[in-house]
Simulated assay, not measured.
Amino acid sequence: MNTATLKPTSAGNDQAPWYRHRWPWFIMLGPFLVVVAGLFTAWLAYTRQDALVVDDYYKQGKAINQDLRRDRAAATLGLHAELRYDPAAGRLNGVLAGSVPRGDNKMVMRLVHSTQPQKDIVTDVVLGQDGRFSIALPMLEKARWQIIVEDDEGGWRLTGEWLWPQQLSAKLAPVLAPAE
């Protein structure tokens, strides 16, 4: 046996190539996962439409003054509403109080989902003589709902926010804006 060709081996001197060790791969795993997550985020941004941005923002901005007039009209009439949802019966019951104009017994109610417009609910409401109403409503999903109630001619408007199912009822009132 030739002793000149034998090399002493120690635990710290491993002669295997770098790719045979686990630590370089473990260290490279972090940056690789960041690149994959970035590509996935870019794919989501490219393929999904942003539901919070409207195409006609200028037109909607100009319509704000008209909306404020509707809120002021509701405040002048002293209108306010209270709604209560009965999930067992699948009905939304409510009452509209204040000086409701004569013959104005039809309203439009919008339940606007906080992030997904395809889940918005728009329904017509007919008021009784005492201002009470009841409409069939499917089971609502857990969300922060924006509620808008207005007459069918767009003369006044009440708004409110409803955190379902934490809140069983919601109160609507006009947004009081200073007169211009």
Rank of each mutant, 00 (worst) to 15 (best):
T3A: 15
T5Q: 11
T9Y: 14
S10F: 14
G12P: 00
N13L: 10
A16H: 09
P17W: 01
W18S: 02
Y19W: 15
Y19D: 08
R20K: 13
R20E: 12
P24L: 07
W25G: 03
F26C: 12
L29I: 06
G30P: 03
F32W: 07
L33P: 00
L33V: 14
V35C: 11
V36E: 02
A37T: 09
G38M: 11
F40I: 14
T41F: 15
W43Y: 10
Y46E: 07
R48D: 13
Q49Y: 10
Q49M: 06
D50A: 06
A51G: 02
L52H: 12
V53M: 02
V54Q: 12
V54K: 11
D56C: 10
Y58R: 11
K59S: 14
Q60S: 01
G61A: 05
A63E: 09
I64W: 08
I64C: 07
I64N: 00
Q66R: 09
Q66W: 11
D67L: 10
R69T: 08
R72Q: 12
A75I: 03
T76E: 15
L77H: 04
G78D: 14
G78E: 01
L79H: 10
H80I: 02
E82L: 08
R84S: 11
Y85K: 00
Y85L: 11
A88E: 05
A89K: 08
G90V: 06
G90E: 02
R91H: 12
L92G: 01
N93S: 15
G94H: 07
V95A: 07
G98R: 12
V100F: 01
P101E: 05
P101Y: 06
P101C: 07
R102D: 09
G103Y: 02
G103Q: 01
N105I: 05
N105L: 06
N105M: 05
M107S: 00
L111H: 01
H113E: 01
H113T: 03
S114N: 09
S114L: 07
T115L: 14
P117A: 05
D120P: 00
V125A: 04
V126R: 10
L127A: 09
L127Y: 07
G128M: 12
Q129F: 05
G131A: 07
S134L: 03
I135Y: 09
L137A: 03
L137M: 09
L140G: 05
E141P: 00
A143S: 13
R144L: 13
Q146P: 00
V149T: 14
E150V: 04
D151H: 06
D152K: 11
G160S: 05
L163A: 00
L163R: 08
Q166P: 05
Q167Y: 13
Q167S: 02
L168D: 13
A170Y: 07
A173Y: 04
V175L: 14
L176W: 02
A177V: 08
P178Y: 10
A179N: 08
E180M: 14
